[in-house]
Simulated assay, not measured.
Amino acid sequence: MYSDPLSRFRSTRCPRRFTRLALLAVAILLLAACASTPHRRESTYKPSHSALADLPALAPSAASAGEANDILFRAIALVGTPYRWGGNTPAGGFDCSGLIDYIYRTAARIELPRTSHEMAAMDGRKVHRMTQLASGDLVFFDIGGAISHVGVYVGKGRFVHAPNSGGTVRLDDIDGPYWGGHFAYGKRLLD
């Protein structure tokens, strides 16, 4: 007559009692769920690992602070743009020197030579210690015995550059294992 044992209980015995038990069971389950340890989700944010991150940020002279800010905003805005050897526009992609020339030309109206080696030979104050770099400084890297890579220092131990074929413009720690070992010097053009 009854298809399941509970249907007989619900229909003939105490419908209120069944309802109370069901509500009590739901309440216990909810309380047990609230009392359990929450699952931790791994954050996708990766804070800087640079030892320079805790140092006070340096800026170029007050007269060029506005240009430095424009350079930083332009550089950060280009992160994610594809790398392309010989590239010098956001639409076409960038190589390292094309990126730096584009940033300085559009943000500070300073035209730079085409290669990192030529940029390194320009007039400007050399900065030999990473701790003395100011936001907006060019940073040069010696790879294979000669200056062959350039980026722009944004502060707190980080720089923006177009590192390699198949990659994109990115933000890296200047004192990381690879870049720290190849850092040659910085050059301040904004003072």
Results as ranks from 00 to 15, higher is better:
residue 26 V to F: 08
residue 106 T to E: 13
residue 181 G to F: 11
residue 10 R to H: 13
residue 57 A to E: 00
residue 43 S to Y: 05
residue 36 S to P: 04
residue 153 Y to F: 08
residue 169 V to M: 11
residue 132 Q to A: 05
residue 8 R to T: 03
residue 41 R to F: 11
residue 166 G to A: 10
residue 137 D to W: 02
residue 152 V to D: 03
residue 156 K to Y: 03
residue 41 R to C: 07
residue 5 P to R: 04
residue 119 M to S: 07
residue 125 R to E: 12
residue 80 G to Q: 09
residue 67 E to L: 07
residue 139 V to T: 12
residue 79 V to W: 06
residue 191 D to M: 01
residue 107 A to D: 03
residue 103 I to Y: 04
residue 159 F to H: 06
residue 41 R to I: 10
residue 103 I to N: 03
residue 8 R to K: 08
residue 27 A to N: 09
residue 180 G to L: 07
residue 34 C to E: 11
residue 3 S to K: 09
residue 108 A to K: 00
residue 108 A to C: 01
residue 3 S to E: 14
residue 186 G to I: 01
residue 137 D to L: 01
residue 136 G to W: 06
residue 21 L to A: 10
residue 102 Y to Q: 05
residue 41 R to Q: 10
residue 73 F to G: 10
residue 23 L to P: 10
residue 186 G to L: 02
residue 72 L to R: 06
residue 53 A to D: 04
residue 32 A to H: 09
residue 170 R to S: 14
residue 108 A to E: 05
residue 136 G to Q: 02
residue 133 L to R: 03
residue 104 Y to P: 01
residue 49 H to Y: 05
residue 110 I to L: 06
residue 144 G to K: 10
residue 40 R to T: 02
residue 6 L to E: 09
residue 84 R to I: 14
residue 39 H to T: 13
residue 111 E to Q: 14
residue 70 D to I: 00
residue 91 A to G: 12
residue 175 D to I: 04
residue 133 L to I: 05
residue 11 S to L: 11
residue 103 I to D: 01
residue 62 A to C: 03
residue 89 T to C: 14
residue 88 N to I: 13
residue 29 L to N: 08
residue 138 L to V: 01
residue 42 E to A: 13
residue 138 L to G: 04
residue 124 G to S: 05
residue 70 D to E: 14
residue 177 P to F: 12
residue 116 S to Y: 11
residue 57 A to W: 01
residue 30 L to E: 01
residue 8 R to D: 15
residue 9 F to R: 15
residue 104 Y to T: 01
residue 165 S to E: 12
residue 99 L to W: 07
residue 149 H to L: 08
residue 100 I to F: 06
residue 26 V to Y: 07
residue 15 P to Y: 02
residue 1 M to Y: 11
residue 114 R to V: 02
residue 56 P to N: 01
residue 151 G to Y: 08
residue 5 P to V: 10
residue 123 D to I: 08
residue 16 R to N: 10
residue 141 F to M: 04
residue 100 I to P: 08
residue 4 D to P: 07
residue 41 R to H: 08
residue 43 S to M: 03
residue 31 L to D: 00
residue 179 W to N: 03
residue 40 R to M: 12
residue 165 S to I: 07
residue 8 R to W: 14
residue 128 H to L: 09
residue 172 D to V: 10
residue 101 D to P: 07
residue 162 A to E: 06
residue 54 D to A: 05
residue 7 S to R: 14
residue 64 S to W: 00
residue 52 L to R: 04
residue 35 A to T: 12
residue 177 P to G: 14
residue 107 A to E: 04
residue 129 R to F: 10
residue 92 G to C: 12
residue 23 L to I: 15
residue 113 P to T: 07
residue 150 V to I: 09
residue 3 S to G: 12
residue 20 R to D: 10
residue 76 I to T: 13
residue 168 T to Q: 14
residue 138 L to S: 01
residue 34 C to W: 11
residue 39 H to R: 11
residue 53 A to C: 02
residue 16 R to L: 11
residue 115 T to V: 03
residue 88 N to P: 09
residue 3 S to W: 14
residue 137 D to Y: 02
residue 4 D to V: 10
residue 151 G to W: 08
residue 55 L to R: 14
residue 191 D to V: 00
residue 17 R to L: 14
residue 86 G to L: 06
residue 178 Y to R: 11
residue 16 R to G: 13
residue 189 L to D: 04
residue 85 W to F: 15
residue 6 L to T: 11
residue 135 S to H: 00
residue 163 P to C: 12
residue 22 A to C: 07
residue 2 Y to N: 09
residue 43 S to A: 05
residue 139 V to G: 13
residue 151 G to T: 05
residue 109 R to H: 07
